[in-house]
């Protein structure tokens, strides 16, 4: 690990004033940043510790429904909070299926969406061609080992996926990231946070340098929601594919459906077409649900080794719809 200078933010103003400086990064739970520093993925000169900031770890009900979760809330504290577990099972489940008990005591909900791809070429200890790691050097995965890579939204510059489970649930819930920056505050829809590779796969999210997530707002409760994570071992493992689903039901009929797939693209992937077609369908009509989901994969495109993920993702989405329908408030 290269040396850096460490500073502790005493207040948000302080963090914003210094955070826009050159070669400066924030530190929250540290579970990603420390590994980036070890691998040389980040080489900051200054690290600003956010963990002493007060008032940013609370979970509070919003007037008129919904919840606001402070960015520094630790993952376990979010998942085990009664309002989250009861009102937003998809988020609670996505978190509890992330990482391990110890890691979730450190990792923050605001830091989680900043995690970078698990692409082995990107995380390699020696320098390999990788446009994300070293812009312009090429993509080793495109014609290399890409069985864990994208099926949606990729191009030849980068075929990686965003691995966050919580971010997938937040996109299905239409959550809002509330940010502050020296130049003003913003509200960013969760689905607009991560960006597709384009010609600049090293640019991964919509935040400006020095911009801070202070909170995440969840709209009205989604008790009929569920998270399904498919992986190579049962626990403490990243997803091969995941599906986050939130339903509104009128009797057994679906009146609104929101579906986000995880680990299939560089951002959580909404199945918008299927969401529209599911309105009015019975949540017990497995055949109809399957037909609609399968019909909404027109944009899916396999790499040399990732075709199985298309089948897996379809099955995950169908099963997650059924799980969400059965979730009882």
């Amino acid at each position: 690990m290269d040396s850096f200078a460490y500073g502790r933010a005493s207040g948000i103003e302080d963090a914003l004033a210094e955070g826009s400086g050159p070669n400066t990064v924030f530190l929250a739970g540290g579970t990603e940043l420390l590994n980036w520093l070890r691998l040389g993925i980040a080489k900051p000169e200054r690290v600003i510790d956010l963990t002493q900031l007060t008032g940013l770890a609370e979970i509070a009900r919003l007037p008129g429904g919904g919840l606001r979760i402070g960015a520094l809330a630790r993952l376990n504290d979010v998942a085990l909070n009664d309002d989250v577990a009861r009102g937003y099972p998809v988020l609670s489940q996505a978190i509890l299926k992330s990482a391990s008990a110890q890691l979730r005591n450190l990792a923050t909900i605001g830091g989680n969406p900043f995690q970078k791809t698990r692409c082995g070429y990107f995380r390699a200890e020696e320098a390999l061609p990788c446009n994300k790691r070293n812009p312009g050097s090429g993509c080793s995965a495109l014609n290399g080992i890409n069985d864990r890579h994208a099926i949606f939204g990729w191009n030849e510059s980068c075929v990686a996926t965003q691995p966050s489970d919580p971010a997938t649930a937040l996109v299905a819930l239409d959550a809002i990231f509330v940010t502050v920056h020296r130049e003003g505050e913003r509200r960013i829809e969760a689905t607009d946070f991560h960006i597709l590779p384009g010609d600049t796969p090293h640019i991964e999210n919509a935040l400006r340098h020095g911009e801070l997530i202070v909170g995440i707002e969840l709209p009205a409760a989604a008790p009929h929601s569920a998270y399904l994570k498919l992986r190579e071992r049962e626990s403490y493992e990243y997803a091969v594919v995941s599906a986050a689903v939130a339903l509104d039901l009128e009797g057994e009929r679906i009146s609104r459906a929101r579906i986000a797939l995880g680990s299939v693209a560089l951002k959580p992937w909404r199945l918008t077409e299927a969401e529209h077609s599911l309105v009015g369908v019975s949540a017990n009509d497995n055949a109809a649900i399957r037909k609609i989901i399968e019909g909404s994969f027109g944009e899916a495109k396999a790499l040399t080794h990732s075709a199985y993920k298309i089948t897996l993702a379809k099955n995950a989405a169908v099963r997650a719809v059924r799980l969400a329908a059965r979730a009882s408030p």
Binding site: R8, G30, T31, A99, L103
Partner: peptide, 27 residues
């Protein structure tokens, strides 16, 4: 592992279990 992947470094920090390889002493 020194990467948060094994749990061998688990200690209690203010009463909660954490991976000590992912915590800066300064923090």
């Amino acid at each position: 592992c020194n990467f948060g992947e094994c749990g061998a470094c688990t200690v209690h920090l203010n009463g909660r279990r954490v991976n000590s390889c992912l915590v800066l002493a300064a923090s």
